[in-house]
Simulated scan of single mutants.
Amino acid sequence: MRSQAYEERLKAYEEQLKAYEGRAATVAGVGKDPVNEPMIRHWREAMGDTNPEYAGPDAMAPPTMLQVWTMGGLSGHTGRSEAYDELFALLDGAGYTSVVATDCEQEYLRPLRPGDEITFDALIESVSGRKTTKLGTGYFVTTRMDVRAGGELAGTHRFRILKYAPAQRKQRQRTEQPSPKDRSNPKSRRPRPVINRDNAGFWEGVARHQLLIQRCSGCGALRFPWLPGCNACGCLEWDTVEASGDGTVYSYVVMHHPPFPAFDPPYAVGLVELSEGVRMVSNVVGVPYDKVRIGMPVRLEFQRYDEELELPVFRPGGTGEGGGG
């Protein structure tokens, strides 16, 4: 049971935190570059967005790039106030030394186009009361940024983080293979995929040992992962084609950390280009993690992890028609 003195100290501390609400985090910030076509092109290639409205010197920038034009890079921005650093120092000093981004919200008021000069102001919009999460106990801090183009408000970006003290966890002894008891323990099972009305057909195919790719009924473009509409022509009608199962490792990473109980790092996660031309992320199995290579031909198989979960993975082999680099 917490003492009255403790409660009074906590109240006084949280009043200190609340005093930062409404204070400026950045004043009269200036985007390091105007909105520009090369950056838009890089974004479109990274996101696989082929919408023609975002192509060419007269096109608009994808709205979700709003924050991109305000980023300060490694050298930061001028105009940053001391309030944000003071707030972080106050949280760090009380033991809330870890940080994780939790969510963001964006509101778009006008399109941004190549040549627009970006300015912005940011303020500390809110500091929550103390919250206890699975990560640990801490405080949510929300920053609001107003983004302007040529002095006109173009959009608002809210960014929320959690500053927390990590929860104490018992160290789990690692073994080469989990015991049957571990396999039945929900904490040691792989996370369940999020299934919704937009991707349910994909998972139904997996249950039948089919890897299904969406095909637009309007332009015939194939797409993966599944989306409610075509990002090439906007058509909402589609059917599916079954992948042959052949592919090539287009890129990959080796996961070492964090050591989730359901995984056994290090292991390879590949970006596999299927022979149909689309790419998907999956595990590369049947080969040591340090032997996976870009350009390696792979073949689809379905691997069962527990009584409820079966996933598409890739094993070296197959014809491997695809890209690389």
Rank of each mutant, 00 (worst) to 15 (best):
Q16P: 03
Q16M: 13
Y20R: 05
E21F: 07
R23Y: 02
R23D: 02
R23M: 08
A25E: 07
T26A: 08
T26W: 10
T26V: 15
A28Q: 09
A28F: 11
A28C: 00
A28Y: 08
G29L: 04
K32V: 15
D33N: 02
N36S: 13
N36G: 07
N36F: 03
E37Y: 04
P38W: 11
P38K: 14
P38Q: 13
M39R: 02
R41Y: 07
R41V: 12
R41D: 12
H42P: 11
H42C: 10
E45D: 15
A46Y: 09
A46I: 01
M47S: 11
M47N: 08
M47R: 15
A55T: 07
A59I: 06
P62M: 11
P63H: 12
P63A: 13
P63M: 05
T64H: 09
M65K: 01
M65E: 04
L66Q: 03
L66K: 03
Q67Y: 00
T70V: 00
M71K: 06
M71I: 14
M71S: 11
G73K: 05
S75M: 13
T78A: 14
E82Q: 10
E82H: 08
Y84T: 02
E86G: 15
L87K: 08
F88C: 12
L90A: 12
L91W: 12
L91K: 12
D92A: 06
D92Y: 05
G95N: 01
Y96R: 04
T97I: 04
T97W: 09
S98L: 09
V100E: 03
A101D: 09
A101W: 02
D103I: 10
E105M: 03
E105K: 05
Q106I: 05
E107A: 10
Y108P: 04
Y108C: 06
Y108T: 05
L109R: 15
L112T: 04
L112G: 08
P114W: 07
P114Y: 02
P114S: 03
G115R: 13
G115A: 07
D116V: 10
D116H: 10
E117G: 04
I118R: 01
T119R: 07
T119S: 11
D121Q: 05
D121T: 03
A122M: 11
A122E: 07
L123I: 00
E125Q: 06
S126I: 05
S126R: 13
V127A: 01
S128G: 04
S128Y: 01
T132Y: 00
K134D: 12
G136T: 04
G136V: 02
G138V: 12
Y139C: 09
M145A: 07
D146M: 04
D146T: 09
R148G: 10
R148S: 14
R148A: 12
A149C: 05
A149T: 06
G151A: 02
G151E: 06
G151T: 08
